[in-house]
Simulated scan of single mutants.
Amino acid sequence: MNTLVIYTHPNHKSLSYAFLEEVLRGSKENAKITEVKVLDLYEAGFDPVLVFHENRRRRDMYREPELAEYREQLLWADQIVLVYPIWWGRPPAMLMGYIDRMFASGFAYRDKGGLLPEGLLKGKSVVCISSMKGPTHYPLLWLGNSHKILMRKALFNYVGIRKVKFFEFGNMESKKGKQSKKLEQIYRYFKTVG
């Protein structure tokens, strides 16, 4: 299984980075994971800004040459792992910009003229690992589960990815946040997934 890990946090001393390290540690010990590639969106200098004008049309976005390497990574991956914080009830703008640019018509899905498109990324799986300062159940109780609905239904199911797993950790800035236990949980999951 080829695994692409997309890391989205500007600080390598963050808890998100510690989660990334546990993904890599567990994956290294898992015989079912053949290769792992890490895309650090900040380190790579990924440009999350959409630009459309008379010479750059939205319908041609899937052919943008500067995104070819990123498209190849997504096609190569059997498993896509997203590691990011929850800010203002959603993933960081950098990750949302990556999603806007990468999951384009003609690459991630194809319109068929009906209600729903044909997802072109079928057969892949996704794991979302997110952490937040707020309480664990904040997204569910206060935001109507908007984070999971956004990621699962509005994005991944739309492009054909049906297997989506969430690790959504709250209270991560609290001394009672059980950070070590959560890190160990991620390590154990990636050591055995497949």
Rank of each mutant, 00 (worst) to 15 (best):
G144A: 06
K133D: 14
V126C: 00
K122A: 13
K133Q: 15
P117E: 08
A93F: 12
P139W: 01
F107D: 09
K122S: 06
L115G: 02
G106N: 10
G97T: 04
V127N: 02
R101D: 12
S146P: 05
Y109G: 00
I129Q: 00
L116A: 08
M96R: 01
M102C: 10
G114S: 13
H147M: 10
G119I: 09
P92K: 07
S130E: 09
P92F: 09
S125E: 02
P135L: 06
K148W: 09
M102V: 04
D111I: 08
K122E: 13
V126A: 00
K112L: 15
S105I: 10
Y109K: 09
L120E: 14
M96S: 07
L143E: 14
P92Q: 12
H147N: 14
M132G: 03
E118N: 03
M102E: 10
G134C: 04
Y109V: 03
K112F: 08
S105D: 08
M94V: 12
S105T: 05
F107Q: 11
G97R: 08
A108H: 10
F107R: 12
C128F: 08
S125K: 15
W142M: 15
N145E: 01
G97F: 12
S125F: 04
L140Q: 06
I99G: 05
S130D: 10
D111M: 13
L120Q: 11
